[in-house]
Design a protein around this nucleic acid. Structure first.
Lengths: 128, 128
DNA sequence: GCTTGACCTTCCAGTGACTAGAACCTTTAT
DNA sequence: ATAAAGGTTCTAGTCACTGGAAGGTCAAGC
């Protein structure tokens, strides 16, 4: 398989796949012409990565998850620890964003949005 | 005021304040010795920026908000438009994260987290 | 006057995870 | 023969800082 085939099937841009090779997440073989020659196993890995990234795992987490995936002697506890830590980060991020949304939502609500200059949003940013 | 005083009072690291000068958000005067000499108005601006950044506004949004803030002929509608657009982005981000959290939460829930290798998290990343 | 330490300065490089674009090579179809 | 559609590498840009190096300045204490 050439890169654009794998890209389609894994749901990743070709550029991203090249980048993943750069940082050592996949190591496709090369054809005589220098083109990357992807095996089914490479496709598999890339699809795995695509899903892990969709769940918001960092590249470094992905690296760990891939290693665990390929290690038959792993314990599910190791996997769960990585996932739980990431889940906690997501929760924290949501909490921060919700706070932003609530504050900003109130401000937007209270702003007339007309042609006059008076604005509670600016007033709030001004320190009051 | 020297930079560390403003830093304390505005609640921003000195490095960040220098960066804000670099990108033209503030233009403090200079003393004879080359030190930045901040006026009260600079402090005011920096505190404004600090609050806007806390609400998640991008630097470019901050630039716009600052300009509106300093323009007495602004309309509150202009401010509200910027804020509303940002609010929409926050909502979208929250929605994405909540989806991640729900999916990942279920996976973590369903993983035994023991010494055995079987793991629904990896199974899900593997493609189903 | 000298040293010490706490300031201040500039400049360069790195972060994360790509992404755009340039310059060039290979394959396939007409 | 040529043109389009693929492939390759490389550099640089994104965002908003942050760390660190190398060096200048200032105030206090001896």
């Amino acid at each position: 398989m050439n890169i654009s085939d794998v890209a389609k099937r894994a749901g990743l841009p070709a550029k991203t796949i090249r980048y993943y090779e750069d940082i050592g997440l996949v190591r496709p073989l090369r054809s005589a012409n220098g083109y990357r020659a992807f095996q089914e196993s490479d496709l598999h890995k890339l699809a795995f990565l695509s899903r892990a990234r969709t769940l918001g795992f960092s590249i470094e987490d992905c690296r760990i998850l891939l290693a665990l995936y390929e290690d038959p002697s792993r314990s599910s506890a190791e996997v769960k620890a990585v996932a739980r830590a990431h889940l906690d980060q997501i929760e924290a991020k949501i909490a921060g964003l919700v706070e932003m949304r609530d504050t900003l939502g109130e401000l937007v609500q209270s702003c007339a949005g007309d042609s006059r200059p008076d604005c509670p949003i600016l007033k709030s940013l001004d320190g009051g």
